[in-house]
């Protein structure tokens, strides 16, 4: 019994990876208007042993081409004063398939809960881990339906904002120093 306890603790100490400058972009593409925004300050932690993967991004850190779009995004659509962050909490479904010690491109599936605008939805997307000379980066691309997250688009701008927006995630992970 005593031994099992020690063993559990040891696995719990296994390697975690993190980033504080993950890039999240989204694209809304309609014949009337193309909208693109980038956030380069997303934080993420990946726990190799459990496959747990988490992301958080400040809504106000999304940068737009047009200042007014950015203001509307925060004020009218995402209501960032009330819902300052978007988060993802999920798992890489087959963490064992990725060997961070070996260069290569690993296709995985990520599934979990995405919270935007205070609304949580299940999402699942293929993702890629790329290991090059011990340098680890992860990327994924998926679509979400804006309305599912309780974001209302008034009819007057209906033609300019896509119902489905594409989200690209790209982050370079660093090994985390475990706190003792």
């Amino acid at each position: 019994m005593l031994f099992t306890g020690i063993l559990f603790v040891t696995t719990g100490m296994a390697q975690k990876y993190f980033t504080k400058d993950g890039k999240i972009s989204f694209y809304s593409d309609t014949p009337m208007e193309k909208i693109e925004a980038n956030n380069t300050k997303a934080v993420s932690v990946y726990d190799v042993s459990t496959g747990q993967l988490e992301f958080a991004a400040l809504i106000k850190a999304f940068q737009f081409e047009k200042a007014l779009m950015q203001e509307h995004f925060n004020e009218n659509y995402l209501e960032s004063n009330t819902y300052p962050k978007a988060t993802f909490k999920g798992k890489v479904t087959e963490p064992g398939a990725v060997d961070f010690g070996k260069d290569g491109k690993y296709q995985v599936q990520v599934a979990g809960e995405l919270t935007i605008h205070g609304v949580t939805k299940q999402v699942s997307t293929p993702a890629t881990f790329q290991v090059t000379n011990g340098h680890i980066s992860g990327s994924a691309s998926f679509n979400i339906e804006v309305e599912e997250y309780g974001i209302k688009i008034p009819s007057i701008v209906r033609e300019k904002i896509a119902k489905e927006v594409k989200i690209d995630v790209q982050s370079d992970y660093l090994p985390m120093q475990e706190k003792s």
Binding site: M1, L2, T4, G5, I6, F8, V9, T11, G12, K16, F18, K20, V43, S44, V45, D47, T50, Q52, L53, E54, A56, L58, K60, E71, N74, E75, T87, K89, M176, K179
Partner: peptide, 30 residues
């Protein structure tokens, strides 16, 4: 013997992101 196990279980449920030091940012009113 049980204490570490329980601790471990709880740690797994906890917020992974809380492991990162929260860098406080300046937020301007808009």
């Amino acid at each position: 013997a049980l204490v570490p196990v329980q601790y471990h279980l709880r740690a797994q449920d906890a917020d992974l992101l809380s492991l990162l030091d929260d860098q406080e940012v300046t937020e301007y009113a808009t």
